[in-house]
Write a protein that binds this DNA or RNA. Structure first.
Lengths: 109, 109
DNA sequence: AAGACCTATCGGAAAAATACGATGCATTTA
DNA sequence: TAAATGCATCGTATTTTTCCGATAGGTCTT
């Protein structure tokens, strides 16, 4: 994960509709949800949500799989992992003392 | 860290200038850097960078302290920690099997 | 006290993001 | 084959973001 990739992922998640959709998909791992289900959950127009979904897909946070005449969307946990690793490296670059308390709290989940 | 706070933090980091400034400040913990040093590093106008810095400050990612006639900026590691915890909870909500490999990689830093 | 320095804020122009309806393509159903 | 379903894309209007120069308020120096 380089800086550009991280920036794209951050921008993709920095929108209420997209963050909520991504969280919903994470909760529905590994089965996923159809695009239509996500549209319904968003409360937005189908076309508008499609644009948001494209942003998540372009960022690599969501992958889609054709299933009949609908698409099943799934969260890419590895992409989230990559983003968190990128953020963590910011504070741990040769300074474990900054990162240790962070990891300690993360371990609780 | 609630959803709104996380969204604000994500949006604040989702810009090249702001992400770079934040990373620079993390690297310079705990001494910090003056606003002027950050302006020079950004290559932008003083006023333009000041706006970016305000976004980071509003998101709670950066705190400033008056020091003579300049301001020393410092990264708020706890805010970063909070954001990462928020993201991690997305994938660990009652499903440790998703989060374990993530934590395993984080532990390496 | 006057001038230099550091930073925030205002006003405005240019660029990007957001939202919608309409349309088109592929797939399933009838 | 014809109609209906599921989704992406296009065109476009509105809003938001981004950037700059100019200005103003403190703080230090002289």
């Amino acid at each position: 994960m380089n800086t550009d990739t991280a920036l794209t992922a951050l921008a993709a998640l920095a929108h209420p509709t997209r963050l909520e959709a991504f969280r919903l998909l994470v909760q529905h791992e590994p089965e996923g949800l159809s695009t239509g289900q996500l549209v319904d959950a968003s409360g937005l127009t189908q076309s508008t949500f499609s644009t948001h979904l494209a942003v998540l897909a372009k960022a690599g946070l969501v992958k889609s799989e054709k299933r009949g005449r609908q698409f099943i969307q799934r969260a890419e946990i590895d992409a989230l992992k990559g983003l968190m690793l990128f953020l963590a490296k910011d504070c741990c670059q040769g300074r474990a003392e900054l990162c240790e308390p962070l990891l300690a709290e993360l371990a609780c989940c």
